[in-house]
Simulated assay, not measured.
Amino acid sequence: MTDEETVGAVARKMVSEDARWIVDALLGAGKSSEEAAGVVALLLIGHSSRIVYEGALAIRSADPYLGVPAVANELKDVHADVITRSRHATKLLDDTKKSLDDLQSEMGGYYARHRQEFTGNSAEWARFMETDLGLYSAAGRLLGATIPLQFRMGILANSKVADLGQQLYEISQEHGSIQALLSQAAGDSSPITYDADYGPLGRIEDSDVLTDRYLSSRYDPALPLEAKLLLLMIEGELNVSSVLLPFTEARHPDAVFRARTIILIHALSGIQQVLGRLNGSSQSPSTQAIRAYVSQPRVQRLLGPGGPRNIRNRCMHYEIKDKSLALDTSKPMNGIVEAVYPEMSFSDFNQEVTNTTTELSDAVRNWTLR
């Protein structure tokens, strides 16, 4: 094949791999229970949106070595605006068009809506028992919280909370039909199998809390509640990466590598942004501990320009514009890691991402008022 043909084939292969991974990851949860399927859908819908959005861009490309007109003609965009917002939320706080203040304000809108719908409705003597934030956790780790998850899903804050379940169902149905088409991007029309087994994880626990009470002891006391909700979203993403994704990694190693790399790069960047706001205003020992961790040269290297950022770009966007990259479909990630970051092998970079994700997850978990 020519360089152009190889690059196009690799991009289409990644689209197909990611589509097959996310369907396996989502539908496999149904083997445990309907409840587990619903929670996993909440936790992974943002990743599905990324694949739908970026995959559709690739399949619709005018590049003859990338686009697949026969598949593109079947794609529909019923929830295009929601998918676009959800895909963009994959970047967490890395939004070039919105400042941290903008994102805090936006998250504040979600909080206000949930507080309005869930509090102030009981008799005055019973209001101390009211809650407005649902938490999902497993293996002792927070996987997600309802308010940040609505932001992550791309559903606007003015939507009624009671309608979110139906909206999630409709979006998931659309995702499923699109993923089925994207799975054929590399020419494989076989049905998608879903064998993900989350059984060893145990039950995904859910609990309800009052947002301001729960967050009063989380992260740094100098942070506004809205910033803490953003950190809650980041913490959930890190734990999804370290707790949930391993159950699908054996069958979909490259797809999980891409998801994990994207999560880590943006989680690190988001945490660094929040720490930058604190400057020297906080002397909290746990804040100083996480600041020291993020400041380590090996961690900062993941945020710098060059290799790690280039790998993240190839994990996020399927189209490869550099047709001269020396790719090899027999290697993990098709040789992309070595091609854009010659200093490291895929194995070494994958291990660094996995280890750093676990370490950062631990650091954020311990980021409490003490």
Rank of each mutant, 00 (worst) to 15 (best):
I271W: 12
I59D: 13
A70D: 07
L181V: 01
R370M: 01
V52R: 15
A41N: 01
G165N: 09
A19S: 06
E352K: 15
Y318P: 13
A227F: 10
A9W: 01
F247P: 14
S242P: 12
T287K: 11
K91M: 13
K13P: 00
I45W: 08
R203N: 07
A126E: 11
H317L: 12
V337C: 06
S207P: 08
Q272F: 05
Y293V: 01
F118P: 10
P69N: 04
H317D: 15
V71N: 07
L275S: 10
I271D: 13
L264Q: 10
R127C: 06
S361D: 00
S269W: 04
G335E: 00
I262A: 09
Y219P: 04
R203P: 15
M344D: 09
N121D: 08
H266I: 07
V71R: 12
L43Y: 06
D77C: 06
G120F: 06
S347I: 05
G140L: 00
L100T: 06
R213S: 12
M129A: 08
G38Q: 15
D163S: 10
R301W: 05
L278K: 15
G30W: 08
A80T: 14
I290P: 14
E35F: 10
I51D: 09
V68L: 02
L75R: 11
L278G: 03
G109L: 03
K323T: 09
R298N: 05
R87N: 13
A126C: 06
Q166H: 05
G236A: 03
K160A: 12
D206W: 11
L182R: 10
Y110H: 02
A80Y: 11
A126I: 10
V274I: 05
P246V: 02
V10G: 01
M333A: 09
T287G: 11
Y110T: 11
N334Q: 02
S16E: 01
Q288S: 09
N279K: 15
Q166E: 09
N121C: 10
S99K: 12
G28N: 10
S282R: 14
D188Y: 00
A157K: 15
A326K: 10
I51E: 06
L223V: 06
L229V: 01
K160D: 04
S347E: 11
A185S: 04
G120A: 11
V364F: 10
D206C: 11
F128R: 03
L232D: 07
E5D: 04
E117F: 13
G28W: 12
P246K: 13
G30A: 07
L66V: 07
D328H: 00
H252P: 02
D24Y: 01
G46C: 03
V82W: 06
I262N: 12
E205N: 13
L149C: 14
M1E: 00
S282V: 13
L229N: 06
A292S: 15
K160V: 15
S190P: 08
G46Y: 08
R152S: 09
Y198C: 03
R251N: 12
G144W: 04
I178D: 08
P285C: 00
G30T: 11
E226G: 14
R60Y: 04
P246H: 03
T2R: 07
E235P: 14
S281R: 10
S177N: 07
D212A: 04
N334V: 00
R314Y: 05
